[in-house]
């Protein structure tokens, strides 16, 4: 259809569908306003339930005592750090392929949240490492690859804010995010090869998770809570970004007379 209509000059008007409908900022603002209360309620509910179950109900570990409870923050933060990076890279691909303005905004809005989760993951890991391994920091494979992920996030944020034109900054950062998407698994495996001290994965095993259901439930709740919190932050940040741009345009129009 696009190929035919290209010859006639103007493509026939058609109703925007799916993601393209959201390129209209007003329409996206409506959707974001609709999502906002749901995300807020889910985030608050699951986080409170997860904290109560994790700190009060779940039994202490037979080896690690109560210190293991830090995983209820540590593990979901790690998942979010990686999920947000993938979202960012996919949004970057969408921004580069379809020039979708919303994709730019999602990348801009996600990066600081992802960096914060990565930092929380590193911090909680360090706090857990002190009683368990007897040291605040070890150059273990997972810690190191999370640290590198943190640096990649910082690079993304720095690159995106280095451009005066925000769209250009978002597109440049999108390219970086895609290069990172190819490179991060390689970094992960190379660091893994380099040194392994961290316990192997327990939840994402193919047969059955080697973790008790009473510990699994709060972990799962916290993960849902963190995800909802991310969606919440995303709607807030994208909306305020759109509003900030509108204000800037209004000011420019005003000063132009």
């Amino acid at each position: 259809m696009a190929a035919k209509s290209a010859n006639t000059g103007n493509p026939p008007p058609r109703r925007a569908r799916g993601l393209h409908a959201l390129a209209n900022p007003a329409r996206f603002m409506r959707l974001a306003r609709a999502i906002f209360p749901f995300a807020a309620v889910i985030a608050a509910g699951t986080l409170i339930a997860g904290v109560v179950l994790g700190l009060a109900v779940a039994p202490a570990d037979y080896q690690q005592g109560d210190a293991y409870r830090i995983i209820f923050v540590h593990v979901p933060a790690a998942s979010l750090a990686m999920i947000i990076y993938v979202v960012m890279a996919l949004a970057g691909a969408a921004a580069l392929i379809w020039k979708h303005p919303l994709a730019d905004l999602i990348g801009r809005a996600s990066a600081p949240v992802g960096a914060a989760f990565t930092f929380i993951n590193l911090l909680t890991g360090s706090l857990w490492g002190q009683p368990m391994w007897g040291t605040w920091w070890v150059w273990d494979a997972r810690l190191t690859s999370m640290l590198i992920l943190f640096f990649v996030y910082l690079g993304y944020i720095a690159l995106q804010s280095a451009f005066e034109d925000p769209t250009k900054g978002a597109r440049a950062a999108a390219i970086l995010a895609l290069v990172g998407l190819v490179n991060l698994p390689i970094i992960h495996f190379s660091v893994n090869w380099w040194n392994t001290l961290h316990q192997p994965a327990t939840i994402m095993k193919l047969d059955r998770p080697s973790i008790d259901p009473s510990m699994m439930a709060p972990l799962f709740l916290m993960l849902i809570g963190f995800l909802a919190y991310y969606v919440l932050m995303l709607t807030i940040r994208v909306r305020s970004d759109i509003i900030a741009r509108r204000i800037r345009n209004l000011r420019l129009m005003q000063s132009a007379g």
Partner: peptide, 9 residues
């Protein structure tokens, strides 16, 4: 800042 983390492998 952009390149060094990617050069780790």
């Amino acid at each position: 800042l952009l390149v060094l983390p990617l050069c780790v492998p």
